[in-house]
Design a protein around this nucleic acid. Structure first.
Lengths: 168, 168
DNA sequence: TGTTATTCGGATATTTATTGTCCGATTTAT
DNA sequence: ATAAATCGGACAATAAATATCCGAATAACA
């Protein structure tokens, strides 16, 4: 029951992109370098976010990524689901239908109790993550930051960002 | 974010063992055969349950497994933790300390906000599973079972169980 | 308008975790 | 004492996560 590193990286990248000025983007390589993680694998996570409609990509020179919607509309669950998939963590294989006393399919109108219990727990997990937006996270990060560090980030952003082209 | 099959098998096995008469046990091979799953791998899960103090094992002839405590004292979380481990699913690698604008350790007195959010969600998941005992599951299973099937299980149990030795 | 530099996107290796198997250690019945 | 039976941990195969590469597409510039 492990959550992939990609979720951590994608979440940090998303929070980072909140700080982007209007009409600017960050390329995958820059986002990877900022957190000192492998470029190509970070790129893969960004592709997943792009497919999920969380970020918007621009190709070619001066291309890059930016948020596709408001930071208050992007939850931690959105990011997790984009990377890990929407499927349930507990996969019921219906072993109650196996073996010498296996139930017939017609006797299985109600779902397996064990699977149901996990479904409830997973819903609680999801609902909790859905209450946290990356806007919340960004605000908390800024709150617990020394002012000088904040300006460091600002300078880095300016040195890395280029005006994006107008076309989508 | 997958939960291993072992959890499913272990949970079904635990529910099965509720029905064991006092002083009797089921060997790993029988539990595996009952649900039609690989014997040796099922045995591995039972070993994990044994280490966690959920089941009790007896070796040698007429050996086997039985519950080590009351069914009302064994939760679905106990079983999950025994198989998957107690560690968090989201593993924070502190990438906020990396890169050109990385935070110094002294600036990281508060835990990473992203990790915190996942910790809350995982707690909700755990707490949900902790409310479900295998006694609950067993009762629900019996409730949704045709009487004739119930007696099938009873007969199978009688044919498979042997009196366990007295010594632990 | 062609050319080139740049960046994303999917196909491809490598490593790690899960799944599955085997044989020795231990215990009990005879 | 002996032998049959069962658990327990060490060992292999498979699937998934991690990391990498190269082609496709786009925009800037001459």
């Amino acid at each position: 029951m492990q959550i992939s590193k990609g979720v951590e990286w994608a979440a940090h990248a998303a929070v980072m992109m909140i700080a982007l000025p209007e009409g600017r983007g960050l390329k995958a390589e820059a986002l990877a370098r900022y957190h000192e993680v492998p470029t190509a694998y970070m790129a893969k996570q960004l592709q997943a976010l792009s497919k999920a409609g969380i970020v918007q990509s621009s190709r070619g020179a001066h291309g890059g990524y930016r948020l596709a919607k408001t930071a208050t509309d992007i939850t931690l669950w959105d990011i997790t689901a984009a990377i890990e998939g929407h499927g349930p963590a507990f996969r019921c294989t219906e072993i109650r239908q196996n073996g010498p006393c296996g139930l017939k399919k017609t006797d299985c109108r109600k779902p397996c109790q064990i699977a149901s219990a996990f479904a409830v727990a997973e819903r609680a997990f999801r609902d909790s993550l859905k209450t946290v937006t990356i806007a919340d996270l960004g605000a908390q990060v800024v709150e617990n930051l020394r002012p000088e560090h904040l300006s460091d980030v600002g300078h880095w952003l300016e040195s890395e960002t280029m005006p994006l082209s107008e076309k989508t």
